[in-house]
């Protein structure tokens, strides 16, 4: 079952344009017409090329040649979902998950199919399955899961994120997602605690302090926000005198923040 480890999409990404790659594989297939692997690879190329008919044909041929190659079934499900056929996608991926019940990508695929079909509760359950086991270490799946959950229960999504982040060494992408949720839930104290923790990890604080000022402003703490905007403004100006520049939008955000919070500074660039 080692093939389950393989990142099918990436492993079959063509070198050269899709047409050229399809031709090359077709040429190889002339010598090895019963190679399930070649059919699977060509199916992926057809899928990338959005040639759904030929993609399905190749995937099914691969499965027929090697019924143990269930990853072709997952690929087929992905193709169906991409082609706007979520019911077919659900059917195929459920079949795949019987053979590979621990496959995180399979569960994620099922969750997306269920979401498309409007079965949100089932989708949430599928996301939960996707983020257990090996999927529990994947920030991309956690982000998708919490976004799905947040549509109906942002607080639950936030709890999920914090559990995930703690288990993964607090990747900054999960913290940023949690920060957005906290702001949407008006949990400003929590958001400020989080952004200050992030700032403490950074050697360059300005962007995090700027974010802190924006959270303070959103929380209605205008005077505090203004003070932090001013501090950021000072840091950016000092940086300029030492030939240290920052992205332009930092200046823009600082200047507009100062204006909104009754600062006296104009454009800090």
């Amino acid at each position: 079952m080692f093939w389950l480890l393989l990142d099918l999409g990436a492993a079959t990404t063509p070198h050269g344009d899709v047409h050229r790659a399809i031709l090359a594989i077709t040429k190889k297939m002339a010598q090895r017409p019963n190679s399930a692997g070649l059919h699977l690879r060509r199916g992926e190329l057809h899928r990338i090329h959005r040639d759904w008919v030929n993609a399905e044909r190749d995937y099914r041929r691969a499965l027929k040649l090697d019924p143990s190659m269930q990853v072709a079934r997952r690929a087929l499900a992905r193709m169906f979902l991409q082609a706007g056929r979520p019911t077919d996608a659900e059917r195929e991926v459920r079949g795949f998950l019987i053979a590979a019940p621990g496959d995180a990508d399979g569960w994620a695929l099922l969750a997306r199919a269920l979401e498309t079909l409007g079965h949100r509760a089932d989708a949430t359950d599928a996301w939960r399955r996707a983020t257990t086991g090996t999927g529990g270490r994947r920030a991309d799946l956690w982000l998708q899961r919490t976004r799905a959950v947040a549509r109906s229960d942002a607080a639950a999504a936030l709890r999920d994120l914090d559990v995930a982040a703690a288990g993964m060494g607090r990747p900054v992408v999960l913290d940023l997602e949690a920060l957005a949720l906290e702001r949407s839930l008006s949990r400003f104290d929590d958001a400020l605690t989080r952004v200050r923790r992030l700032a403490s990890q950074a050697r360059r604080k300005a962007s995090w302090r700027l974010l802190e000022a924006e959270v303070l402003e959103q929380a209605g703490r205008t005077a505090d926000a203004n003070m932090v905007f001013r501090e950021v403004d000072r840091q950016l100006r000092e940086g300029l005198t030492r030939a240290r520049r920052v992205p332009k939008d930092w200046h823009t955000r600082t200047a507009s923040g100062l204006r909104r919070t009754h600062g006296t500074r104009g454009d800090t660039r």
């Binding site: 480890l5 393989l6 990142d7 990436a10 990404t13 995180a104 999927g135 270490r137 994947r138």
Partner: peptide, 13 residues
């Protein structure tokens, strides 16, 4: 891409 022949980035396995 050749390292990916025996490893998967998404799961770090």
């Amino acid at each position: 891409n050749h390292d990916a022949g025996s490893a998967l980035a998404s799961t770090q396995l």
